[in-house]
Design a protein around this nucleic acid. Structure first.
Lengths: 359, 359
DNA sequence: TTGTAAGCGTTATCAC
DNA sequence: GTGATAACGCTTACAA
């Protein structure tokens, strides 16, 4: 509990205890020594006994490599409102972060996690070897100066960045699949799309693609403004309530920019006596873990979230270590996860009516 | 995109451009200079123009303070099974991590996130000034050696650690409240408790307290082994299915060690035609964001997850900076979040029957 | 294989 | 106030 009396052993302590020079210790510790000499054993023993762990700062300074990569989420001013949003929209982001951590760990790197506001991201470059920026943390034009200091990978950006490599999912293809399923498979023609925050490229792209696909398929989409939410379940509940009050006939199917909002929509409509999927089909995006356990189980677009994070870090480490990335825009596939909220009856599931929520 | 030609400016570049010595630059940058001298302005300008950011390694080496605190979750071997579990049990942990990040940022520290296996935690001490260990990452006896190198704070431990400070929630009080609500308020007498992994102190404590409280209240609890799950929704679904098949009469109320498992229980029972809360009341733990949007909305124990993380970091930074913590066992309060799954009818909610899931 | 010594970029202690 | 200069702990030529 005490404030660690400065007794942490250094390489000098190890060297003197092993009766060798610090250079030898360093070599042994970095695998640059024939593991069978006498000094090798002595060093290992000293390290063991003293519980020596190399000082990361010293190592980083000397090698010019900290073996730390930073990942930044959120950003922007931390207003209470944003905090709440962040709190809810956590699921996907955190899955990405886990993937990133796993990817980093595999290569012996550590992950520095930061929710620094846009203005503070620059300062991070002093602590890391490279940076992964999540959707919405910095406007494109502000990444160039960063990228001059450390390699940068954009996660879920537009894929059109000049300054950085992008790792993302193909929102266009994904939404085309949603439209095809809703219109082609289920014959729903009057649609709506629940969007996240305007500032997010992901939300914008999904909305645009959905709209385009629907029009091409001969379906109609309600004005986006009528269903504009903020990534959260609570926001979606509000939007649905407002729409319900308008009295106008409801759409036949609703696609959402993420699962949390789909949950909110299902919740609000269910409370109002709307049967899902009988009256209205609902589709989400992300496939967060609880999605399959909702009533009805949510049909949604599965994103390889962990892999997104892992890939970003992998590519970034390549860049850090001087291996130029093969591609500057890496696109991972999505998959429509068909469950019951769209009107399908996945094998093993109870008939669609059983998901009805009675009023 | 290029591998950052080693052109990152150092304090020397700033000094020469400003026409002063590096000592002056350092002083200006660290606020140890009368902000109104000529050199002050020159330095600031040079910093701005060059986009200088101090090298964290050098700073850390020189000051003996890296301004990085580490937080470790999970741990253990990363088998596929554990990965899946981790994936699902993410919600609470990540909320804690967010809180920790916010707490660190507020004091100018960064957060190093790690899912390192138990054996690799030691190596982390070289990269951080202090360590926050989440529930279940290290057996108590292994934290002492760590604590000799850097200050350690245990999150959600037993509160009885000699080597480290503990920040936790009072599981005993929380579960007593659950029992009181289920038995006292709703008159349910035949109970069950769905536990998480055996290795987790949190799960064990919650189970034990629930059991003790129930017995004291004159209620019965089914054998814990019959409802032993693994923190995940999927695991809880399995347990419920098995229990359903046994044919024995079901309990009147089920408490779960976390919300994810409660979701799984509600899901599985609902599919089998059991009405919740009419036939069986279900209560969760954690109050993850989606809980309030389930059908029925989940009654659960709210943990101040963000605050748990923030407090842990706050205390840890105190220790890092030589301020001994006032208390070695910090207990944060929980609160029973009453919604509908227990049989209550929170204001504004539809009547209990509306949550019934028809088969 | 081994040891000596130079440097990595800061901060901090001195004289001035 | 300012500028040399010595740490800080490690890696890595370079010699031996």
């Amino acid at each position: 509990v005490q404030a660690t009396g400065n007794n942490v052993p250094t390489i000098y302590d190890v060297a003197s205890r092993a009766g060798v020079s610090i250079a030898t210790v360093s070599r042994v510790l970095n695998g640059r020594s024939n593991g069978s000499t006498a000094s090798y054993a002595q060093v290992m023993e000293a390290v063991e006994v003293l519980g020596f762990v190399p000082n990361g700062s010293a190592r980083g300074l000397s090698k010019g490599l900290k073996r730390v990569i930073g990942i930044v989420y959120g950003g922007g001013p931390a207003t209470d409102e944003l905090l709440a949003i962040e709190e809810e929209s956590l699921l996907f982001t955190d899955s990405v972060v886990r993937g990133a951590e796993a990817g980093a760990q595999k290569q012996g790197y550590s992950l520095l996690l930061s929710g620094a506001p846009a203005g503070a991201v620059g300062a991070l470059t002093g602590k890391v070897d490279g940076l992964v920026l999540l959707d919405q943390v910095l406007p494109e034009r502000r990444v160039a100066p960063l990228a001059k200091r450390v390699p940068v990978v954009l996660l879920a950006g537009s894929g059109r960045s000049r300054a950085a490599v992008t790792v993302r999912v193909d929102n266009e293809v994904a939404m085309a699949g949603v439209v095809e399923h809703l219109v082609g498979r289920h014959g729903r023609r009057r649609l709506a799309f629940v969007s996240g925050l305007d500032a997010s490229p992901d939300s914008v792209t999904r909305a645009r693609s959905f709209l385009a696909g629907a029009v091409a398929a001969g379906a109609s989409v309600e004005p986006l403004a009528d269903w504009a939410a903020d990534w959260t379940s609570a926001g979606a509940v509000e939007v649905a309530r407002a729409r319900l009050q308008s009295g106008a006939p409801l759409p036949e199917a609703i696609a959402c920019a993420n699962d949390q909002m789909a949950i909110g929509i299902v919740h609000a409509l269910g409370r109002a006596g709307v049967r899902i999927p009988n009256d209205i089909a609902v589709v989400g995006f992300d496939d967060i873990p609880v999605s399959r356990h909702l009533s009805p189980p949510l049909t949604t677009v599965r994103q390889p979230s962990r892999q997104l994070g892992a890939t970003a870090v992998e590519v970034l480490i390549d860049m850090v270590e001087g291996r130029p990335p093969a591609r500057r825009d890496i696109v991972l596939p999505t998959e429509l996860q068909v469950r019951a909220s769209c009107g399908c009856r996945p094998e093993g599931a109870a008939p669609v009516d059983s998901w009805q929520i009675a009023l």
